[in-house]
Design a protein around this nucleic acid. Structure first.
Lengths: 343, 343
DNA sequence: AATGTGAATGCACACGTGTGCATCAAGGAG
DNA sequence: CTCCTTGATGCACACGTGTGCATTCACATT
């Protein structure tokens, strides 16, 4: 059995209330007893019980984080950013992978609810609306990251995908490409949509007609999906001269397919990624991509959530609080997988 | 304020004790009241408070997991395996990254302690001994994964690195290589040591003398370290014909350096990785590596930890319980980055 | 009718912590 | 000397849940 404040109280010859106050730095307690008690607590190896404290204060000091798949480096960096922002605060995080599976999502939300997490960061490509409502019903504030359905959330941190996609598309067009394919992930509804919008905007303003045959949308965005998408694309008679991939993982898959088929990148075909995960700098050729400020996004989301939690604590009303959304921009990263169109 | 069993009790016209029993399926309560109460709880959106329950039962139903860096795909898969094993149980996990930083480790252990996690899985390349003792002092059972200092732990799941390294080395030797370099990570003490041992064993039994100049040990094992190690290696006049890398990340870095220098892989130099992370299948050439059963390792660790927790619950004495260690073996994966030695 | 039996439920306390209120001692003002 | 203020501490309850024990009721047994 762990040491409790009662044990300390007994040993110090005071009441447990005094110990509680001393440890929390209450001004009601004289400095000398405070010091004596703290020293004793240290010696006895006392650790406050988060459960008991949470029960009393109805603050768990835990945030829930939902990602599509931990192990995906993109989410890894987001979580990293969240940890950065939480450093120095009393908060810990529950990280859970939804695998875009409704049943799993349900379990996660239940677990978050039972543990009375103080807030949730939803950073998954898609998340069922009913679970959002459930969380709201529990009174748990939510901040969404790059939400696929922003209308479901009142607080949001997002990357400006339209802007990013435009930069990438403009880059390809400036290189003389006109037959540009797009390999996307339809499960990431809003994000995919925004990137397509940015892509189309640039194509239109350059006066290039879109070829529906070159627009591919897959069910996921892992490397293997890039392989799949690129393969069907390369089977077409009239191949594109450039491929705009939804993210770096797809691009890595696409890159491999091209090289296996003996198509030189970037001489014969240009390939772009998106997100700038670490590995994209180490492919050969190194991937041209759009550098999304992932850590910053995670940190901002955590910051916003903490604000929300504290505001609520001070009597503010969630329902009436103004919705907030931050849109962050990244930067085009031209590396080696893109070159002037030669055909 | 969330719904409590008292709210349910009031509405159902029974005592809160009856509600508690009904929800927990106690045989003391008649079937009809049980059903009625459960229905009511469902309607009212009741969620048990993990804090209150934990306070009473002194079981948090939370496991702590410490990894070096979440975002490293190797640990991502380990965590995946842990999640697999926990599916269907009432357990959730706290995942924390130590970044191999002692101060961070201390915070993590404190957080785990305050939350009274039922057990901890240590899956980081190195973890300070004092923190292990602290956890033990708190009475929290620990299972280590691939521990760098197995003597510190009584329960361990490990990959047979000596065996694995031997397979890799044997493969390279069979291809005719004699000047084989090793790029390692000295921070991963035991693991690195075992892989070196396996490597040496095969070299010796093949009658090949080791060249100390070809043994490089770095401070970390990320891609950039592979770049660093390979660069210094290639500056030597008398280059190796094969490079045995500590893990896939280092190998990916090494691969890139070779190719940037115009050294063809595997024609001029063979490179091997270790672990078989997803990306290793998509480099060009695809990496020859040793497939470590990462998910299985994670799952086995979780299973062992649950056993430990339950045994303790049933009055067994931790101190006298026999230490247990499982050694799992993987399989050599020959892909394209290795070939017959041509010099 | 008195007693025993078993099933179903309520009472009351405990877990570890925080906090409003009462209590107590010391000392200054009247 | 009494009253009041100030500072320091204890008492007792609360948070939401689980559980040993007592209680109640119905029914069967003597």
């Amino acid at each position: 059995m762990p040491v409790t404040i009662k044990d300390i109280a007994r040993k110090a010859g005071v009441s447990h209330a005094t110990v509680s106050r001393a440890l929390n730095g209450s001004p009601l307690i004289s400095q000398e007893t405070t010091l004596a008690i703290r020293k004793l607590a240290e010696e006895m190896g006392y650790l406050p019980s988060a459960a008991a404290r949470g029960l009393k204060t109805s603050r768990s000091h835990v945030l829930g984080v939902i990602v599509s798949r931990i192990g995906n480096p993109y989410f890894g960096e987001i979580v990293q950013g969240i940890e950065d922002a939480l450093k120095g605060t009393a908060y810990s995080i529950f990280v859970a992978s939804s695998h875009l599976d409704a049943a799993v999502e349900e379990n996660i939300v239940r677990a978050f609810g039972e543990h009375r997490v103080d807030g949730v960061i939803v950073a998954t490509a898609s998340f069922s609306r009913s679970q959002v409502h459930l969380l709201r019903r529990y009174g748990i504030p939510i901040v969404a990251i790059n939400s696929s359905s922003p209308q479901d959330y009142r607080f949001c941190i997002a990357h400006d995908d339209v802007y990013g996609a435009r930069q990438v598309a403009r880059h390809l067009i400036a290189l003389g490409h006109r037959r540009i394919a797009y390999i996307g992930n339809m499960r990431a509804a809003q994000i995919n949509h925004d990137r397509i919008v940015g892509f189309k905007q640039e194509m239109e303003s350059a006066g290039i007609a879109l070829d529906a045959n070159l627009m591919i949308n897959l069910q996921w965005s892992e490397i293997e999906n890039g392989v799949e998408g690129m393969t069907t694309l390369m089977r077409r008679k009239d191949r594109p001269t450039a491929v705009f991939c939804f993210n770096d993982l797809i691009a890595i898959g696409a890159l491999q397919v091209a090289q296996r088929m003996g198509i030189r990148v970037p001489q014969e075909i240009s390939i772009t990624g998106f997100d700038n995960i670490t590995y994209s700098a180490y492919t050969l050729p190194a991937l041209t991509t759009f550098d999304q400020p992932k850590r910053l996004i995670g940190a901002e989301a955590a910051g916003m959530l903490l604000d929300l939690i504290n505001r609520r604590g001070s009597g503010g009303d969630d329902e009436r609080a103004a919705p907030a959304a931050r849109l962050l921009r990244g930067k085009l990263l031209v590396r080696e997988s893109t070159a002037r169109c030669m055909s």
